[in-house]
């Protein structure tokens, strides 16, 4: 049983538009059987934070291509991507590089 976690979730590059325009969310993830990883976090975000058009943020069990994920300001590719196990006080940032979320030039 994993203890509840306090995590900062942040959206940038226009992705915040799908979250009522709010960039920073301090969230508490409830304790659950399995440990919290990014895969679970995305499910949780979709259920609890995402306000509209989930397909513009999530595709399959991951983020839509073109959305970057930074965990504690480091590339998630260095940390196992979806399998990264969240620690208490981690910060997870999603930056959209998509054009609709952002102007091109």
């Amino acid at each position: 049983m994993a203890a509840p976690l306090s995590v900062e979730v942040e959206f940038g590059g226009g992705a915040e538009l799908l979250f009522d325009g709010v960039k920073k969310h301090q969230v508490t993830l409830p304790g659950q059987e399995e440990p919290w990883d990014i895969r679970n976090l995305l499910v949780w975000i979709k259920k609890n934070l995402l306000k509209e058009r989930p397909e513009l943020f999530i595709q399959g069990d991951s983020v839509r291509p073109g959305i970057l994920v930074l965990i504690n300001d480091a590339d998630w590719e260095l940390l196992g991507e979806l399998d990264y196990q969240l620690q208490d006080q981690d910060s997870v940032l999603f930056i959209s590089t998509l054009h609709g979320h952002q102007m091109g030039s």
Binding site: L17, R53, H99, G100, H101, Q102, M103
Partner: peptide
């Protein structure tokens, strides 16, 4: 961030 013509 400024909304573009195709935002969302």
């Amino acid at each position: 961030f400024t909304p573009a013509i195709d935002t969302k």
